[in-house]
Nucleic acid binder design. Structure first.
Lengths: 279, 279
DNA sequence: AAACCGAGTTTCATTTATTGGAACCAACCA
DNA sequence: TGGTTGGTTCCAATAAATGAAACTCGGTTT
């Protein structure tokens, strides 16, 4: 089994979502659980929320804490994601995300259109924002990079879904909540697929107030020459300032930027540096 | 053994640095190793760099990859930190770091002094930058937040070390490389301790070109009322634009900001929200 | 004050996953 | 063709994870 390969021919009917490779998988599941709470969480809350037996959960938490992946506040007796994650994520962001490569292009586009620009990637069927240029105020750091969002009702999400292979697409669709955020939200796989077909034909996606009322956006996928989805790029505005046709006028610039990012990403090779960071 | 507690009375002579709780520890060690390379890394490179036997390392990598903690590029046959880390770090940054609480204060200070401002915390004896305000251009995202640096030769590092308890201090000192970056770098624990005493007396630290030539900074610790080190705050400039006395003139503002952050951090309690993110 | 409680922690025999030496496979040289 | 490197798989030995139950410790209740 090659790690990266996207197994097409897995049994289509595995009962449990077949997570958890051994102990490490469980530990990471706990880690996710703590992170999902978005606030310090107590042992008993985790215990209630999870299938692990007391003692097991306890040891898992201990291990993660002693490893710095979680931090424990003895006063409040609560766990929170630890700073080691931030350190690790720094590396991840720098070398696995599109952000460093795309930065100059995103900067240019943002300056050009004067609206908010998002750069996103697909992570487990969810949209993961990896960079953002806010028209005015300085970038909100992590509060945006690292944030996840739904794919079924965002421009970047749909732009990426539209160009997925059938296998990964089904997988991603299965992970959508299809939660209705607004009147315009597409709330079924069928409706979404119809839109995806249009997006594929058109080359870019709209979000016409599907996620938040008053917020519209145009998004283009970032694709390798071979057609693999790398990410997506979007320009967001409000119905007050703009409308869909006005956004569409920006499409050429956005598509061009997306293409430029794709080209850079593909030609990118890591310099064969041999120096190690000064630890 | 309470997870968070800083065991004072552990046998002072454990031979190996006693890492690795079980499998999870090993997996995380591999993760760190991959991250430390700061570039995609091949199986054999990791194998050479590490004590794990081939098969073990292989399985560890498989597990981490299938969990999304690493990404694997089949073409180049190389591993890199995965996007799941970015997602997790987002949570960590938001709730475990000082950054969200400190933001308004950091903003204000940055506007006031017109120089680069850093917010840092101590992570395993290293300085971990959690936020940054760049005098001019928009914030460099992760490229700064999540970055680690040496503690022995940076303003924020020394400001934090100076107010550590003897136990944690010794631990942190033992982790310093004491690498000489410039002529001014303090390269021994003895010299550093002398400086820490001055810092403790003075209330703030200088970095007088100890890390980079031409770069000077003034840093203040962020302390709880009880005296526990939460982090540090610094204003950085260049010898071209400023000098040490000029920086010292900014000290009151920096100290005041640090105090304000500490006060906010201490009064901060997480709102007892019960809603969960819309997964 | 004694009994009770519930959250958190530890123990220990049982079960299970991890381990790693060795064999294997597939390219790529020479 | 035969050697070599780089990566993957096997499987019996082993070490680690497991989880039911017992325990501890503050704070309640009766």
């Amino acid at each position: 089994m090659r790690p990266g390969a996207g197994e097409d021919e897995m049994n289509a009917e595995d009962p449990a979502p077949q997570r958890a490779d051994g102990t490490v998988g469980k530990a990471l599941e706990v880690l996710d659980m703590v992170a999902d709470f978005e606030r310090p969480v107590r042992f008993s809350e985790l215990l209630a929320a999870e299938r692990f037996p007391k003692a097991t959960l306890f040891r898992l938490l201990q291990t993660l804490t002693s490893q710095g992946m979680l931090s424990y506040d003895p006063d409040r007796q609560s766990y929170a994601p630890g700073m080691r994650l931030v350190r690790l994520a720094h590396s991840a962001w720098r070398q696995s995300s599109l952000a460093p490569i795309a930065r100059p292009h995103v900067d240019r586009l943002a300056a050009q259109v004067g609206e908010t620009v998002h750069l996103a990637q697909l992570d487990n069927g969810q949209v993961l924002y990896v960079d953002k240029r806010n028209a005015r105020q300085p970038v909100e750091m992590f509060s945006q990079a690292g944030k996840i969002g739904p794919a079924h009702c965002t421009g970047v999400g749909k732009a990426m879904l539209a160009f997925l292979e059938p296998g990964p697409l089904e997988d991603a669709l299965a992970r959508q909540s299809f939660h209705r955020f607004t009147d315009h939200t597409l709330t079924s796989a069928k409706a979404l697929k119809a839109d995806l077909a249009r997006i594929r034909a058109r080359g870019y996606a709209f979000d016409d107030e599907e996620h938040e009322p008053g917020i519209i956006c145009l998004a283009a996928p970032i694709l390798t020459r071979a057609g693999r989805v790398l990410g997506a790029l979007s320009v967001t505005s409000t119905t007050e300032r703009m409308n869909i046709p006005a956004l569409e006028a920006l499409a050429p610039g956005i598509l061009q930027t997306a293409a430029a990012i794709a080209a850079d990403a593909e030609s990118w090779r890591f310099p064969e540096q041999d120096k190690r960071g000064g630890r």
